[in-house]
């Protein structure tokens, strides 16, 4: 759902599969402090926002899509 949301809104993103990429899996756990998927990391000038799960409201707000 997160990917579809980004596609619908025309948001460019990089996908990392924690199922096959152990480094990405550890990065996800370290940054989000939890082990549920999906996790979206939004970077803006060195500042990172972490969204756990598909949270349309938060994604919309952080990305200024409203």
């Amino acid at each position: 759902m997160t990917k579809e949301f980004f596609m619908q809104k025309g948001v460019a993103y990089t996908e990392k599969s924690v199922a096959t990429d152990q480094i990405a899996a550890q990065e996800m756990i370290d940054k989000s402090g939890q082990m549920g998927v999906p996790v979206t990391i939004i970077s803006d000038e060195g500042k990172e926002e972490i969204v756990v799960g598909f949270d349309e409201e938060r994604l919309t707000s952080i990305l200024g899509l409203a």
Binding site: A19, M35, V37
Partner: peptide, 18 residues
């Protein structure tokens, strides 16, 4: 501990427990 070790979906989260 939900999402901190407790999960309800092996298919989704299983690989994180390698």
């Amino acid at each position: 501990y939900r999402n901190h070790g407790v999960t309800y979906c092996a298919t989704c989260d299983g690989p994180l427990y390698r």
